[in-house]
């Protein structure tokens, strides 16, 4: 199963008994979606969404000898959109992240590879003025 999110595609395990719902193994969750399960809830960087105990019981399943999160339900709660076609799931950006950049005007952070091979994180350029622009060959 493939998850497309945040500009990359990650191959992950699929729960054998349910192909209609997006179940993600907890150990594959950060790499595939950016979210990480912590005692205080699901966290994406500094943003944490509390997961009350009833929800934890409902959305986290122990099966196929692994712990899985019902990501479909979780995404419905955060407002993140997803589309499935066969074994490929595509996730939208996370509304909370987008909204917070709309409200605070702090530019959404990203990590990209420059053509010269260097890794570039926008937040590493703090202290400098930055002009960011897009273009295309089309």
């Amino acid at each position: 199963m493939l998850i497309i999110a945040d500009g990359k595609a990650t191959e992950v395990a699929q729960r054998s008994d349910d192909h209609e719902t997006l179940w993600v193994r907890l150990n594959e969750l950060p790499e595939a979606t950016g979210w990480q399960m912590k005692p205080e809830g699901a966290c994406l960087g500094e943003l944490c969404v509390p997961l009350p105990e009833p929800k934890r019981q409902e959305w986290i399943a122990n099966t196929d000898e692994d712990e899985w999160l019902n990501y479909s339900e979780f995404a419905d709660m955060t407002g993140q959109k997803y589309v499935q076609d066969g074994d490929v799931w595509s996730l939208s950006s996370i509304p909370e992240v987008r909204h917070s950049s709309l409200e605070s005007a702090i530019a959404p952070d990203f990590e990209v590879t420059e053509r010269n091979g260097n890794t570039l994180r926008l937040s590493d350029l703090r202290g400098h003025k930055v002009v960011l622009f897009t273009w295309a060959s089309w």
């Binding site: 950006s93 005007a105 702090i106 530019a107 959404p108 990203f110 703090r126 003025k129």
Partner: peptide, 23 residues
């Protein structure tokens, strides 16, 4: 991905980001 994050729907588009990381 950059267009998605900044909500841009065409090219060329641009943002000025100041020293504090604000658009």
């Amino acid at each position: 991905q950059i267009s998605s994050l900044f909500g841009w729907v065409n090219v060329p588009s641009a943002a000025w980001i100041d020293e504090q990381g604000r658009i």
